[in-house]
Design a protein around this nucleic acid. Structure first.
Length: 357
DNA sequence: GGACACTCCACCCATGCGAG
DNA sequence: CTCGCATGGGTGGAGTGTCC
């Protein structure tokens, strides 16, 4: 099957540094960190490899979920985000940290936001209260952009991404493992299978203390009143906080800035593949795997390059991977990388990861 | 000072196409 | 099947101005 072609990844040709130079980034080990839930990262890293494609989504789904899914065109399981959406989520997690209890892991408000008003819902067999964040628009813009000056166009861009993401549903299937108290203080492990088809965030724009004059203008469609007066209230999908006490990965709080610096200063160069690979590295590190391997034929699927695969754009796949690797090296996530021959003769990437990240 | 609106520019990535 | 090339859309960003 695997024929030796010129564009196959080869050990000699693997040279990720050619695209952009290594910039100097602030020491990452000193940067304050933000938690992201392990379940969320897992969903981002889900992928489908050809052999496992026989089983359709409908065969593995809870019948209860199928009805909802069929109305829409669901092609993927897991969370698939565009680069601006990734950037937004990073910002939202930073805001969540800033506006939550973060010291006391046992606190019920740990990473649960600053707004009390969510109703308790059932989530995978447990009562769950969604995290809600109340914030000023400017905080959202700063968290997204990673700086405090911005133009009107950037505001529009952030709002567009925010509203777009709130309207996007994802099919998320995961297991939550928890221990429960049984008789005589013994604990047992229980696993809840959670299947949901839902958006990651829900957006509530609030308008308060309006004068009659302002109310009239709002009715006439003057959106500026709402924006200036109001606060944004974000409700987070439970997957974003579920078991974040124990299952999480950490990013430096200025990851959005770092990512841009890491590709040479232009945010447009930040690809989806870079976001995914950085998430993959961060997860390996949080699992304390600092020497990590992945087969070369698998990596394109992990990085969600399946469109390129379908179109047989091998060269493009290879450069996308090399750039993503280089970006993660520049970020300080990857210390070293090599392409080696595996036991079965297959090629595999071997990453040495930064345990101080 | 904050929240935009509008304009202008650079250029990256996705996509289509033709060629071998 | 795979490549390189060209094109066009779209995003990021800077600058300036307005309104409250």
């Amino acid at each position: 099957m695997a024929r030796a072609k010129k564009t196959e990844p080869s050990i000699e040709a693997f040279n990720p540094s050619s695209y952009f130079p290594a910039p100097t980034l602030p020491d990452v080990s000193k940067a304050p960190k933000v938690r992201q839930s392990g379940h969320y990262v897992d969903q981002k890293l889900k992928y489908t490899y050809p052999e496992q494609r026989q089983m359709t989504i409908f065969e593995i789904l809870d019948p209860d979920v199928i009805g909802k899914v069929e109305k829409y065109d669901v092609r993927y399981e897991g969370i698939r985000l565009t680069p601006p959406e990734e950037r937004l989520l990073n910002g939202i997690y930073k805001l969540l940290r800033d506006k939550s209890e973060t010291k006391d892991i046992k606190s019920p408000t740990f990473y649960k936001g600053n707004y009390d008003g969510g109703q308790i819902t059932e989530w995978g067999g447990e009562a769950h209260k969604r995290a809600l964040i109340s914030l000023k628009p400017t905080e959202m813009y700063m968290a997204y952009l990673g700086r405090d000056d911005y133009s009107g166009k950037e505001i529009m861009e952030v709002n567009k991404t925010l509203e777009g993401l709130a309207g996007k549903r994802f099919l998320m299937i995961y297991d939550r493992v928890r221990s429960v108290q049984v008789n005589k203080g013994k604990t047992e492990t229980r696993t809840d299978r959670i299947e949901k088809y839902a958006p990651l965030i829900e957006l509530v724009k609030y308008t308060r203390d309006l004068t009659d004059e302002e109310l009239k203008r709002l009715d006439k469609g003057d959106e500026r009143i709402r924006q200036a007066k109001g606060e944004i209230i974000l409700a987070l999908n439970p997957i974003l906080t579920d078991q974040i006490q124990t299952k999480y990965v950490e990013y430096p709080e200025d990851i959005n800035r770092r990512m841009i610096i890491a590709v040479g200063g232009d945010a447009k160069r930040v690809t989806q593949a870079m976001h995914i690979l950085s998430a993959w590295c961060a997860r390996e590190i949080s699992n304390k795997r600092y020497k990590s391997e992945i087969n070369a034929d698998k990596l394109p699927y992990v990085l969600k390059l399946d469109k390129y695969i379908q179109e047989s754009r091998r060269k493009l796949i290879q450069t996308t991977i090399e750039n993503a690797v280089q970006a993660c090296k520049n970020l300080g996530l990857i210390l070293d990388v090599s392409l080696e021959a595996g036991k079965a003769g297959q090629l595999k990437y071997v990453f040495t990861l930064n345990k101080d990240y």
